[in-house]
Structure formats: C-alpha cells, structure tokens
Design a protein around this nucleic acid. Sequence first.
DNA 1: ATGTCATCTTAGAGATGA
Length: 250
Amino acid sequence: MRIATWNVNSIGARLPRLLPWLEEVAPDVVALQETKCADAAFPYMPLQALGYDAAHSGDGRWNGVAILSKVGLEDVSNVLDGHPEPRLVSAQCGPLRVYSCYVPNGRALGDPHYDYKLAWCEALRQQLAARDPADPLVVMGDLNVALHDRDVWDIGAFADSTHVTPAERAAVQALLDWGLVDVEARPGKGDVPFTYWDYRAGMMHKNLGMRIDYVLATRAVPVQDAWVDREARKGKGASDHAPLVVDVDL
DNA sequence: ATGTCATCTTAGAGATGA
C-alpha cells in the first residue's frame, strides 16, 4: 500500500499537476494540505475519475485539508476541540487510520499565532491519546516544524525564527512519544530529504530547503520505503512543497 | 534567502499569508 502527503498550496491552482502525479505515482491514500478551497468547490469529480474517494475540510481562502483514498474512506472526522479552522481531517482507509494535518505556521516568535500553533499541536496530541498506538495509524502532513537542526539548510539562519524552537520541536516530539515513528525519507540531494523550498530567491535551485512535511506512523505500520518526489517541486505550476511518498506493508 | 505565488476585494493594485 502506497501512502503520500503533499501540501499542494491550492488544489485549484495545482490540479494540472496533481492529477497527472496521481496517475504516475498511483498512491492508494493521499493526505493533502492547503487546498485553499471551500468544500463546495473541491474537485471531487476528476479525483473520482482516477478512482479516489475524497474527504475534504475547507472553508475558502486559507488552510483546507483532504484525504484521498482508493482503499476505502470511512469514519471521517474534521473535529479538533477548540480549533475550528480546517486544519485536520482523519478517516479510516482500509486497515489504516489516516490523519491529514496542517499545523499552523506560527508566523513569528511572540506572535499570537505561535502560541496558537503550540496549542493546536497539544489538542492533536490529546485527540490521539484516545486512540491505541498498537493500531495501524499515520499522522501525515505539513507540521511546520523542523525536528532537527539538519532539517533546515542552515540552522544559523534560523536564529529567532519559528519552526526550529525547542517548544515547537517538543510539541511534535509529544506526538512521537505517544507511539509514532518519524518515517524519514531516503536522503536526497544534499543528503537531507527536504520537503519544502520557498518560492523566493531561487531557494529550490540552491537546495535551500526544509523538512517540515512528515509521515508519522505507529509501529503497527511496517514501512518498506520512503522518498520525496522532488520532480513534483520543479517546473511550471509547482507547489512550494514536494510530496513525501511511503510504501507500507499492511 | 526575502528574488514568488495564490487568493480576495472589488475593477486594478493592494492586503494577506506562506
């Protein structure tokens, strides 16, 4: 079974890239983030034509998450206590419980959005705590945190920046401590499997990226392979994030 | 690294967020 996560930065703008990518890579389950569309505008039909059932949670211009599945889509929930923004959707996809997450960016240290980010992660942790880490479950998505110094191109450039602070890393570590494994992709160019490169300043060309998109899996999910599809970040009409693709044996 | 991209408001360029 092949699963993937991808921050598409608008599913409307990305559909000409997303649909061929789905045909080529043929994942069974895909977690999408930043769909940036309302539920009524979600492109269910072209996805269904490729064999995907879809669950979407979105309310328009910002955020928006989805799960696409070829292997069943049941028990869908977009609820996260105290957090009405559409940043979380989960569903049972065959044998696997799937979470698609778009963790708040945080914006800047001292910004209220930074505290919101930490609170959001804690709410997710509490929701997970009601589940059993012995079951097959994956938390996938744009976590907007680089867990290790090596997960950014130059930690020295991140002084007083979000995404790398001890509190943010601890918030993600708390998810891991519940019973999740960080499924790191095979190393890419520069020996770090970055998943995001800013559109600006030729960051992709210079491979100045960040690893902020994750598949976190319980130990009940046997992982066979994991890789970042950098090709999807290249060329005309690309998202600023690349997909992370993981093969699992369930 | 701050060189772009996407969307919305509301009619064309600015604001917002990433």
